[in-house]
Simulated scan of single mutants.
Amino acid sequence: MKLYKLTTLLCLCLSAPSWALSTDTEQPIYIDSDNQELDIQKNIVTFTGNVILRQGSIDIRADKVVVTRPGGNEGQETIDAYGNPATFHQLMDDGKPIDGAAKKMRYETAIEFLKMTDEAILIQDGSEIQGKVISYKIDEQKLVAESGEKKRVTTILQPNQMNQKKK
């Protein structure tokens, strides 16, 4: 699985100079849950109940995680995480954390696309982006945050980050 791309792209969303711990992608993926269900014919694995996914410093927590591999093709996985909210945490090479949350996170490995839906938020170094939907196209390094009904996208930039970017 290419789950490591999920967290790498989240790092890019908030701060291009910060990168995920370079050793994370070299680590095995551990998934703990209360229950696991495998549908071999459909190539779907569903983890439910206090799901914790770890790979190096990457930590994803959700009520449910569904990993789908259409046609059994490696590199074509879709990873869906659901929670109230589903959360993730990762350390950057500079030691600073990046955190995010949404009620639903969907990552499509084949097209390198992440979509966080319902009360989505990304936080790094005190700065944050909030919206109904946050989408990120990894290979193009393009982030789109969308508002919900009667709400607006909110971005909070901390002065220390803005001053560092001017240097």
Rank of each mutant, 00 (worst) to 15 (best):
N35H: 13
A101D: 05
K96Q: 02
L157F: 15
L143W: 02
D93Q: 10
E37Q: 13
D93E: 12
A102E: 10
K5T: 08
T109R: 00
F113Y: 15
K150P: 05
D39W: 01
I156Y: 12
A86M: 12
K115D: 14
M105V: 11
T23V: 07
S147C: 00
D99P: 00
T8H: 13
G83N: 04
D63W: 03
Q90A: 05
Y30H: 05
M92Q: 09
E26C: 06
L6E: 15
Q76K: 12
R61Y: 09
E112G: 13
S18R: 08
D125S: 08
G75W: 06
D99A: 01
K103L: 14
Q161F: 01
T8W: 06
T68G: 10
M92V: 00
D80L: 09
E119A: 15
P70Y: 04
D39Y: 02
K132P: 00
T8Y: 06
T78N: 11
Q27H: 07
E149M: 10
L157W: 13
K166S: 05
S147H: 01
F88R: 01
K150W: 11
R61D: 06
N73K: 14
K2I: 08
N84H: 11
E77M: 09
N43S: 15
A86T: 10
V133K: 06
P28H: 04
P17S: 07
V67K: 10
E140Q: 12
G126C: 02
K151G: 12
K2A: 08
E140A: 13
I44Y: 11
W19S: 09
S127I: 03
L122N: 03
K115R: 15
R69Q: 15
M162C: 08
D24Y: 01
S147R: 01
T25Q: 13
M92E: 04
D99C: 02
D99V: 01
K166Y: 08
N50R: 13
M116P: 02
E108D: 10
I98E: 00
D99E: 04
R69D: 09
A102P: 07
Y4G: 08
P97L: 03
N84D: 13
K64T: 12
F113D: 07
I138F: 05
K165V: 13
I58W: 03
Q164I: 03
